[in-house]
């Protein structure tokens, strides 16, 4: 027995784009729409919004584009600490230089601080948090992570410092202790 069907009203422009999508996928509009709506209900059952789902996909692409990789945090912290214990100066230089590289990369963007913020969102994936505030003559930045080790906190702070140095800032204040980073940056040359 054929299944009962109903009709849903959709914006014409949106519907036309779905028709094009169906053609690209070499599927019927009926099949394409069904699949899309089924996935929406699946997201609903998982308790998440579709917007959030698609945003996360963007996040992964962005991370890849920035040369970031996912790493198990315990491994990362232990490796960073190992490097810091055995070769602190060299390890510090690496993180500062990489920060400067990213800073140079962000400086070309239309809104460099926005690009920094996007990177911070990626770097604090997991159980850490950041806050970045542009206060006109100063930028204040905080990062906290209760699982950060001393070595990783130091490394991350140097990465941040490198980024902002390349963007033309200098640290007016710096407070770094295990799990917590607080900076206030001012533009170089500002009095």
């Amino acid at each position: 027995m054929p299944r009962r069907r109903k009709m849903l009203a959709a914006d014409e422009e949106l519907a036309n784009k779905i028709v094009e999508m169906a053609k690209r996928r070499e599927a019927t509009v009926f099949q394409t729409v069904n699949l899309i709506l089924e996935q929406a209900l699946r997201a609903e059952e998982m308790g998440i919004s579709l917007r959030e789902v698609v945003d996360k996909r963007w996040m992964l692409e962005r991370a890849r584009g920035l040369g970031l990789v996912f790493a198990p945090e315990r491994l990362l912290y232990e490796m960073v600490d190992l490097a810091y214990n055995k070769a602190r100066k060299k390890a510090s230089k690496i993180w500062l230089e990489i920060g400067r590289w990213y800073g140079e990369y962000f400086s070309d963007k239309e809104e460099p601080l926005k690009a920094v913020e996007e990177a911070l969102e990626l770097l604090t994936f997991g159980n850490s948090y950041y806050s970045l505030r542009d206060e006109g003559d100063e930028v204040s930045l905080s990062i906290v992570g209760d699982r950060f080790t001393e070595g990783y906190t130091e490394a991350l702070s140097l990465l941040i410092e490198g980024v902002f140095k390349a963007l033309g800032y200098e640290a007016n204040s710096r407070e770094v202790s295990r799990g917590a980073i607080h900076y206030r940056f001012g533009r170089v040359g500002d009095d």
Binding site: A71, P72, K86, K90, I98, G126, N127, S128
Partner: peptide, 21 residues
């Protein structure tokens, strides 16, 4: 992955650390 305690790190930093360590 988040539940497994995974985070993002610059690949170049990781590679440099790895080769030194």
């Amino acid at each position: 992955q988040r539940g497994a305690g995974v985070l993002q790190a610059p690949r170049t930093a990781l590679q440099s650390l790895l080769s030194k360590a």
